[in-house]
């Protein structure tokens, strides 16, 4: 699968852009947190597309943001 680029994204309608990003992010997130992957991906998709593209290219950035999402979810569920 070829890398997702900003020009590929720009050619798609806004809602489709998020779906495209989600399709790339989901398998990566699923390998870290299989049970929460759909929820975490949904949370991350609210971030700007340019930042999401950066995360797809930077495993460290993605990993940090996924861990942040898990912490937010756990704090939310503890309420």
């Amino acid at each position: 699968q070829e890398p997702l680029t900003s020009s590929m994204l720009a050619a798609a309608p806004p809602q489709e852009q998020k779906q495209l990003l989600g399709e790339r992010l989901y398998p990566l997130i699923h390998s870290m947190h299989s049970a929460l992957a759909g929820k975490i991906t949904g949370m991350l998709l609210e971030i700007d597309n340019s930042e999401l593209l950066h995360m797809l290219e930077s495993p460290e950035s993605l990993h940090a943001k996924v861990e942040e999402a898990v912490a937010v979810l756990q704090a939310h569920q503890a309420k």
Binding site: G22, Y26, M43, E46, V72, H76
Partner: peptide
């Protein structure tokens, strides 16, 4: 530092993992 991530965000539904009809 407070996270900007929203725990009430809509869950992502991947096409690739969808059940075939």
């Amino acid at each position: 530092r407070k996270s900007t991530l929203n725990p009430n965000a809509k869950e992502f539904n991947p096409r690739a993992f969808a059940q075939p009809k």
